[in-house]
Amino acid sequence: MTAPAIETAADGDALGAAVFTIAADGSYGARLAGEGDARFPERWTLDGPEPYAVPLPADQPEEPDTGLLPLADGRVLIHRRHGGASHVFGGGGGRHSFSLLYPTGPRTGELPVGAVECERLALLPPAPDGSRAYALALGEATTTVWLVAGGAFGPERVAEVAGHCSGGVWLDRTGRMLALDREADGVTKTVAVDLERGGEVTPLLQIAEGSNDRLLLADADSGLLLIRSDAPGHDRLGWGVLGSMLPVRFPECLGPSDCAVTPFAVQPGQELMPENCAVALRIDGAAGSWVGVWRPSGRRLHHLAAPAGWLAGAGLWTREGVLRLPYATGAVPCGVAPVEAPEDVVVTETAQVERAGGEPSAARDTPVVCKPVPLQQAPLTGRGARG
């Protein structure tokens, strides 16, 4: 495979690390700008005629692993770690404080919203309603979901799940159903957590008994799921449909041997048409990082050059199929590059029309995803197990 000419990802950017976070409705973005010991939060406005950035510096520089999450009202939640830190899951023990930042004239307004005392804690992706923010705290035997912004009285425990959980994908547009990757007995499976029923847990992915199955992305409009699993024999990227008994597919084109492929955005607005959703992927290889675009119905991974200064792994789709990629360079400190989704020659076969039109795995016995609880039935008693 030949990679296109691209700009290498920024130094220190680990694969999968969120260097730029976009609000649930695409209105704002936030990142930690600056370098070295001079880092500060920066908010981008994305829904106007031209993107622009507003610095939100505090009285002192921020640590490199400070967490940021933009809300739909323009405020930015900041997560600071005190008494020890790690770059991904806030380790080292101590205190985790949260504040809301907002521009006020030439200065930065800061509204403290509380703190959580725990050893390891990380922000979850922006909640679909745009007004709340959640975090995941790991304990010795359980994982706690905290509402850290948007509640009435500061941080609140909303769910406690048995086992060690990671990831975090929202399954609906209300912020009720949260998917987490839970490790138990050395195997990782994705479960759905109902935040309105005290954290009631329902199995979501059970591709094979001993396989490690993780949910990477979900689209509430179409039901499309992007999954990583070692069920085919080694770690592969696959796709399925929420609520379906159809096999999980592991397309060959999503498993290049010389690159790491990570999905980061799904085209919205494709109700009941998961096969037509365009998926944006970050591709990391020896030449750097670039963009991939793929649709289940097309069976082809398109390789596209990323804009210079792309904040690798960040971007969002419009309903019309335009991928918007944020970038920052010396000449353009705040930019968004539009990329039209390439057209696909849709492959249709009579034998597969009833199987969601997707590409089968190369394996003869395609693993089947166990049917997850449909969102509208999730609150029903007896459909899930506590903890």
Rank of each mutant, 00 (worst) to 15 (best):
S166A: 15
G74T: 01
V148T: 06
E340Q: 12
F264T: 01
G357V: 00
C118N: 10
P64H: 09
P379H: 13
L281E: 02
L281Q: 03
H87A: 11
H164Y: 14
A341I: 05
V332G: 02
L205Q: 05
A149L: 06
G313I: 00
G243M: 07
G382A: 12
E271Y: 12
L178D: 11
Y134E: 04
G168H: 10
R157P: 11
T104E: 15
V169H: 14
G36A: 07
F250T: 13
A351F: 06
C259L: 12
V322N: 00
F89L: 07
W294I: 14
D230G: 08
S289K: 01
F89D: 08
P367S: 09
D37P: 00
Q270K: 05
C165R: 09
E320C: 04
A305F: 02
F264G: 02
G168P: 11
R43S: 03
G175D: 06
R282F: 01
V187S: 14
L380N: 08
R81C: 00
T66R: 07
L272W: 04
G94A: 03
V261L: 10
G357D: 05
V266P: 01
G382K: 06
P251F: 06
A280L: 10
R214D: 11
T348L: 10
E117I: 10
C370I: 08
V161S: 05
E252D: 13
V332C: 07
C118S: 13
S222F: 06
A72D: 14
A328I: 04
G154W: 15
D194I: 09
A314C: 13
V347H: 14
V113S: 00
T348P: 03
V148G: 01
P51W: 09
T350C: 01
P333N: 11
A5W: 11
G90I: 04
P61D: 02
